[in-house]
Amino acid sequence: MVEYTFVNVIAVLVGLVFLANGLYIVREGREAIFLFLMSLVVGTGLIVVGLYPDLFQFIATLLGLELKARAILVISNLTLFVVVTYLLNRIGRLYDKLSRLNEQVSYLRTELEEMDD
């Protein structure tokens, strides 16, 4: 029989928060599909792991690892890698958009000043 601990409860609650965040994104009408999918995957993953804690032992065996702690580290590091890569890419694109917006505002300000003269 599986023994559930306080950590399992926390994992399920955090998973529910991720799912709620995904629903919030959809309701707000934002078109961040990747963000919604990541919230869905991470939330569902946390809930499944919280409900079935021995799942990582199966994953460890599947990956050829001795300990389930190593499987947890591998999966969490891969997930973090994907999220950080996405965020860095997103930051770069937002920086470019901000630069273009500043150029346009500067151009419009110059035109306005010329019209006032």
Rank of each mutant, 00 (worst) to 15 (best):
G22S: 14
L46A: 03
G50M: 05
N89M: 12
L13W: 04
S99P: 00
Y86M: 11
G45N: 04
L101D: 10
L46I: 02
T110R: 11
I10M: 11
L35P: 00
A11T: 07
K97E: 13
L55A: 08
G22R: 07
E111D: 06
L23E: 12
K97S: 11
E66S: 10
S106G: 13
G45D: 07
A60V: 06
V49P: 00
R100I: 09
A32H: 02
R93F: 07
F36H: 01
L37H: 07
L80P: 00
L40H: 01
L46E: 03
A71W: 01
E113I: 12
Q104W: 07
I10P: 00
G15I: 09
V14R: 00
I72R: 09
S99M: 13
I33A: 09
L87F: 12
G43S: 03
R100S: 12
G43A: 05
S39W: 02
G64Y: 10
E31H: 13
L40K: 01
E31V: 09
I75Q: 02
E114C: 04
G15K: 01
V84W: 03
M38Q: 03
L78W: 06
G45Y: 02
Y24I: 08
S76M: 11
I72S: 04
V12S: 05
N89F: 13
E31D: 12
L51G: 00
